[in-house]
């Protein structure tokens, strides 16, 4: 797997959520994802960027355009140094929220992408990776 291009963008305040999804859209087009897949990835990015701001107290989004055999992909990683997720099983339950949301952010994002992983521990921050392939 080759990384064609990569970068990082700050996700600190609410307005950064809008910027993160605009970047995700631009990169998804560049990676050659079709419209529905672009929209799914951008929506997942929006959910995760909001989590980074609201629950993670701000962090960063790393992006990579990938190439593997004949397909291309866009991988986004959201990192924060926030309180972390104490109960991962609960956090991955549809409809459960520790805030005032709908509880669809993490589980919904997972459903919208091809690859998904989350690493977190209390006090250690959270790292969520998503990837969508052509």
């Amino acid at each position: 797997m080759n990384v064609l291009r990569s970068g990082t963008q700050a996700v600190r305040i609410e307005q950064d959520v809008v910027l993160a999804r605009q970047t995700a859209r631009k990169l998804a087009v560049e990676a050659g994802l079709r419209l529905v897949d672009q929209t799914k990835l951008v929506t997942a990015a929006s959910e995760l960027a909001r989590n980074t701001v609201v629950y993670g107290r701000g962090g960063d989004m790393d992006w990579e355009i990938l190439e593997e055999e004949r397909r291309k992909g866009l991988r986004l990683t959201f990192r924060d140094q926030g309180p972390g997720i104490a109960d991962m099983k609960l956090a991955m339950t549809d409809g459960w929220t520790s805030g005032g949301g709908l509880g669809l952010g993490l589980t919904g994002a997972k459903r919208l992408v091809d690859d998904f992983s989350v690493e977190s521990a209390p006090g250690q921050g959270t790292r969520v990776m998503i990837c969508k392939w052509t």
């Binding site: 529905v36 672009q38 929209t39 799914k40 959910e47 669809l104 589980t107 919904g108 459903r111 919208l112």
Partner: peptide
Amino acid sequence: MQPAVAITLVELGL
């Protein structure tokens, strides 16, 4: 609502 948005919303669970 754009078709791609509708598809995504349903898959998101909304």
